[in-house]
Each structure stands twice: as C-alpha cells, then as structure tokens.
Amino acid sequence: MFRSDREGRRAAGAGDGKPGIPTVPPRAAELLALLPRPALRWALQRLVAGVGRRHPDLFERLGEHASATFLIDPTDLPVAVRLWPRPEGPQVEIVGRPVLRSAWHARIAGPLAALLGMIHGRLDGDALFFSRDLAIEGDTEAVLALRNALDDAELDLPDEAAACLGPLSPLVARPAGLVVPLAERMTGVALSRAGRPPL
C-alpha cells in the first residue's frame, strides 16, 4: 500500500541514511475514498473509544486541551479525521477536503506513515516537524499536549484494534502478530509500538 518518498526526504527516526517517509500510492488512496464513510467512522470510533477506556491517563496529560477539536490530516489520504478527545467519551468524524479552518482548533498534517510512526513512538514528532514531514497549525499548545499524551500512552494500534473485539480478541491477536511485522517490513511503516513484544 505504501511507497517510499521519491523526493529524497528522509525519515525523522534515528540517524541518517534511512529511506524517506513512505506515502500511500494515489491508486490505493482512491480505493479508500470508495469505502463508505459511516463504516469507516464506526470502526474508528470503536478504536478511539477503546483507547480512551484503556488509557485514561491520556486525559490527565491533555488537561484543558481535551476540550479542543483536532484535525488529524493524513495528507496522502482523501479524508481527514476530526477528533474530540473528551474524557467522558472521545468522538471522531471522517471529513472530506477541503476542511474549513473554523472546523478545528489544532491541525496535525502529514503522510499517514508519519502519523502512525509518531503514535507508535517510532518517529520523533519534533524531528518530523523540523524536516517538514509534519505540519501543525492553530493551537500549538494543544498539539504539544496531544503529542505528549499519546507518546506516554505507548499505544499499539494492532493491540488496540484487537481489544475492541472483546472475547474474539485472541483469535485476531495471534495472526496479527505474524502479519504486522511482515507488513512493516514490506511497507516501511511503523504499524506497531516501538519495543512491542512478539505475541
């Protein structure tokens, strides 16, 4: 699904000489655009609600910024996500582009691989920003609070997705433990947490 950036930019991980941040090929992005948004939103809402339940410390770190509206903007996808990280129940919405400036307080934009790498603690947000792989707009303080809260939460999205399935979780977790590392090697994208123990 992903490809290496051909413009010569380099990743914000440890050291030089790494390939650039991979981007979603336009054809794959077009296919994603065909998926029904209500279904996408339902899946993402379950995931985010589960993260909120399992990581309540996130909201402590967000503090007053939990009342902000964030636009998470994967620039290589046809859609973005509005996030309301409310302690009483975080909410998400899938939105098409362009997104009105009045629709968010803080925007974090970059290739999906950069956003996933940051969530999983594999890429440094500041370095992604310095290298222009990541752009932020609006309430900078809210962006920092969200970044710090997510970094401390040590999220692993495959684990979080599996946990959403309740009793069926073990059925998914084991195959995911085999598929995720393989997919990471093929795509160069951080699909799991740094230091994640093998399942």
Binding site: G13, G121, R122, L123, D124, G125, N148
Partner: peptide, 12 residues
Amino acid sequence: QRSRAYIEAVVG
C-alpha cells in the same frame, strides 16, 4: 520535551 523515539535513538 522530546519523544520516546528521540530518547531511544540519542541515549542509545
């Protein structure tokens, strides 16, 4: 103020 990724890379 930096992330776990920074800490791991620089400390290592």
